[in-house]
Design a protein around this nucleic acid. Sequence first.
DNA 1: AATGAATGAGTCTTCATTCAT
DNA 2: CATGAATGAAGACTCATTCAT
Lengths: 208, 208, 208, 208
Amino acid sequence: MPKTGMRPIRRAQLIQATLGVIDQAGLANATMAGIARQAGTSTGIVSHYFGDKMGLLQATMRSVLRDLFRAMHDRRQALRDASPGARLHAMIDANFDASQISNAVRKTWLAFWSSSMHEPALQRLQRINQRRMQSNLCCVFLEAMPPDRARNAATGLAAMIDGLWLRAALSNDAADTELARRLAYQYVAFQLAGPARTPEKSSARKPA
Amino acid sequence: MPKTGMRPIRRAQLIQATLGVIDQAGLANATMAGIARQAGTSTGIVSHYFGDKMGLLQATMRSVLRDLFRAMHDRRQALRDASPGARLHAMIDANFDASQISNAVRKTWLAFWSSSMHEPALQRLQRINQRRMQSNLCCVFLEAMPPDRARNAATGLAAMIDGLWLRAALSNDAADTELARRLAYQYVAFQLAGPARTPEKSSARKPA
Amino acid sequence: MPKTGMRPIRRAQLIQATLGVIDQAGLANATMAGIARQAGTSTGIVSHYFGDKMGLLQATMRSVLRDLFRAMHDRRQALRDASPGARLHAMIDANFDASQISNAVRKTWLAFWSSSMHEPALQRLQRINQRRMQSNLCCVFLEAMPPDRARNAATGLAAMIDGLWLRAALSNDAADTELARRLAYQYVAFQLAGPARTPEKSSARKPA
Amino acid sequence: MPKTGMRPIRRAQLIQATLGVIDQAGLANATMAGIARQAGTSTGIVSHYFGDKMGLLQATMRSVLRDLFRAMHDRRQALRDASPGARLHAMIDANFDASQISNAVRKTWLAFWSSSMHEPALQRLQRINQRRMQSNLCCVFLEAMPPDRARNAATGLAAMIDGLWLRAALSNDAADTELARRLAYQYVAFQLAGPARTPEKSSARKPA
DNA sequence: AATGAATGAGTCTTCATTCAT
DNA sequence: CATGAATGAAGACTCATTCAT
């Protein structure tokens, strides 16, 4: 009697196992056998549900991205009519959310960044994510500044978040999260207060 | 007697080939055979000079790091007595130096970031690099602000640079470099002008 | 469900193939590919069942030892209440049993002797085997002589058997088996009749 | 200025190095590079003097055999007119001579035994050695018994010596040498005193 | 005579994938 | 649905041998 409705359960199981294995051994050392063992299933099951190793990795990455955007969405919903500053803080918080800062997710994310450069399938996901983040941030900045500056502010904040996040991932130190958040908040404050000096194309290159 | 003194030449050759292969195929797909072919040598030669694949990767990473710090050092020397702002700009420029922004180096760097999480040997190099960058930046900021703020400014700028650098790497678009530099300059200007609002531990978390 | 219970069958198959390859080409030239081909399987299967080449070799040696001791045990059981002489003959016969004198087994045994000196895993097996043989022989001799002499007789007979066995292996001549057995029987007769002259520590060294 | 007369010196050097490496790592792990390093020369030199790896191994084995027979010859010369017993003891002593019982020699010998089964060149040496030993022992026994018994006695003593020697090699215990010698002496005494019971072809097989 | 850099064939091992049950 | 046995291609690494100097 084939149990029905196993699909989503098994898939979630395997994605969790994938995250776990990448956390423990790294993407480069994540084998199908290891993932299946971690999930408590047989090796054949992965092909059955994801067709391919790449299929599993894509699904895993999609799952991580979905979690990130759900976190951002939830927090923005809760502050729908708040000030731009408050909403940007909420989005920053989402990026350092518990679901994002677990080691498993950090390592997975970083690994995907790296391998997305040579795997078109992952690259597409990565691009979508990046664009979505940029536009989400830009929307909020637009309420407080002209479009040109808003775009730059969004790019800068996105870079800031990624950079802080990357450092936290590399240093493997959960305590950094609080500092990371504060530095990101500070950057928002900088941008909302107006640029100290408008960055110009060339003259800014060699300031006294 | 056979040709002597081939050591450094061959090593440089092989490191260049490694960067090339990682650029084309990614670290995950970089095989010894491919690297040897790219270098125009036999496969055995890599073991001969680096002992191991990991030995070659370490040497390659070390080479990339050395280039980065040489670029920073050179630019700082040229501006030894300049203002903090000018020197920070020089350090930023070094990070977006031609030697750093080539695709090969970007991908290699990102790949190393990723795999350093599970390879102690690479992790060590990565940590050393991170600490050196932080302290170099901090030294300059200290001339313009109290130690506490200088440390945060250094961390923030380092994150900013990494984040911008990461985005450039992922988007694979060399044209972003100019924008990246401008955003980093802007961050320096923010910090040197004094914080818009001092980031505080908790009250800053939910600003109106 | 896939065929289950293949484990012992495949393992036996592969061990037989290992013996065959060592017989034909020698341990030094026994490759995994050759063994797999001989067994009619793919190369990967060896790792699947034995993990390692050394794992396969250990299992093979264990199998050979097990066969030897089973042969000895069977023959002793059949003569449970017989005289010491009869039981020692049975043990000698077991050592020159059909399962032991096949060329494959001889060469394998000799190869293991040699490589056991540098492979701790094999050395352990070798030591266990040696000790077990010594104690089995000693038990029987004890029924016919004082402990001191029994120990020496056991050591001597074990050496005799090994030496005869070794010569047979090296000369590659199956016909020697009969002679080997007779010489071993003779040694037993010598010992059971009482020593011609008690071997003494030093005075025996230069007898007239 | 090519130094002349280096040939024998270098050859001896390399043979010693070979013995050393086999002692430390085993024949299976003895590489040309390792031997050259141990000898303090370059890798190419081995080909230069021995042409081949097998050439070096043959020369090494020949050297070991030559040492054994020199030891036997010397001791027999010293006892030219002594009794058969004394001369047999001398030959036994030679086999457990200091030059023979060093670990390096033991392991080398055993390794050669093993690989001689598949290397015709080594096999030839091995056969010559075996035959020479047999005939040397037989000559002496012939002075004390009829040819038929002498042949058997020689075979038995040779087996005894090899077996004792083998056990000593495997147990890696130099202290066994004394016991080994005593057991070999005892065997000589047995044979010289006349067989306890003449070994017969079939009736001896199942004695009561 | 001697060096040691270079080669490349050969080996072990890993692993994604398939498939009969 | 699920299993896990089996495959075989691919990669890292070793090492005897060659050869220009």
